[in-house]
């Protein structure tokens, strides 16, 4: 029979049966929705709420950021990553100075703090610099520079500019005498047609001693100025051929050794000579066309 006070009696026997409460609790906990809520939902909520409350305060946020920064700095400031000096190769003293000016770096510095891309962009923006490579190698920042080679002098409204072979601006020159070897060109927009100027300079080599400058006229055609004030006026299309004809004339008849002020080949079918002042007549040299087909 049932004992009068069942629970008291059962405490003494080792009864394996679960109590009704624990049985129901287990069944409740095995309910899928509740189970997911207890094992995932509530922990996730508590975690999110805790993080939210902690980061709601500014000083906590600062503390975490500072701690993060401390760790970050302690890693990137290891001696392996420190850059102690900078070397510049392939640059003249002037350009070297300029580079050191535009990328001012306080050494020693961590290589993580160097923005190599940005530095390359800055250095390449310097006019005399054609190409630049940057490396960090064995705690040294190496900068390899290829400078633009001066090829022409260009006299324009602002003054005298040095251009490279592509017509890019390299630097300004104070006087013509700074670069006595370089040919001179003049005229507005001359730098935009450097290709033709180079061809003409190559073609005018037989007269090289006498050439003073190339002048770009009206942003379309070239004049070649020789000494004694002689001017070779070339057409806008195919000027090299016209120049070759002038040189051929000169070699055949010593045209330029005479008192000619200007040789006008702007119109190929009507070349014209202008002689010096005492004779105002304009001499036509139609006979030169006899060589033409």
């Amino acid at each position: 029979m049932q004992p009068l006070r069942p629970h008291r009696a059962r405490q003494h026997s080792n009864d394996p049966a679960p109590s009704v409460l624990s049985y129901r609790l287990l069944r409740l906990m095995l309910t899928p929705v509740l189970r997911r809520l207890v094992f995932y939902g509530i922990p996730a909520f508590v975690l999110a709420a805790g993080c939210g409350l902690y980061f709601a305060k500014q000083e906590n946020r600062d503390r975490v950021t500072a701690a993060y920064q401390d760790i970050y700095r302690s890693v990137i400031e290891r001696p392996e990553f420190i850059v102690k000096m900078m070397t510049v190769r392939g640059a003249s003293d002037e350009v070297d100075q300029d580079i050191r000016e535009v990328v001012p770096i306080d050494f020693p510095i961590s290589s993580f703090d160097l923005d190599i891309q940005d530095m390359q962009k800055t250095i390449r923006a310097l006019d005399p610099v054609a190409e630049v490579k940057l490396f960090v190698r064995a705690n040294v920042l190496e900068i390899e520079v290829i400078e633009r080679t001066p090829a022409l002098l260009w006299r324009n409204a602002e003054g005298l500019d040095v251009l490279d072979i592509q017509g890019n601006y390299v630097r300004s020159a104070a006087t013509r005498l700074d670069y006595p070897d370089l040919p001179l060109i003049a005229g507005q927009g001359a730098d935009s047609n450097i290709m033709e100027a180079r061809q003409l300079l190559a073609a005018v080599r037989p007269l090289q001693d006498r050439v003073r400058a190339l002048t770009y006229v009206g942003e379309r055609r070239w004049d070649i100025v020789l000494d004694r004030g002689q001017v070779l006026m070339l057409p806008s299309d195919n000027p090299v051929r016209a120049l070759e004809r002038i040189i051929a004339l000169d070699q055949a008849q010593q045209l330029l050794a005479r008192d000619v002020a200007a040789v006008d080949f702007r119109i190929a079918s009507r070349p014209t000579l202008r002689v010096v002042a005492q004779n105002d007549d304009i001499v036509s040299i139609n006979n030169t066309q006899s060589g033409e087909p």
């Binding site: 394996p16 049966a17 679960p18 009704v20 049985y23 287990l26 069944r27 095995l30 309910t31 899928p32």
Partner: peptide, 15 residues
């Protein structure tokens, strides 16, 4: 019955 069912449910981890 409750004893048997509870331990079986615990093992199966389903209600």
């Amino acid at each position: 019955i409750r004893t048997a069912l509870q331990s079986a449910q615990k093992m199966a981890a389903v209600r």
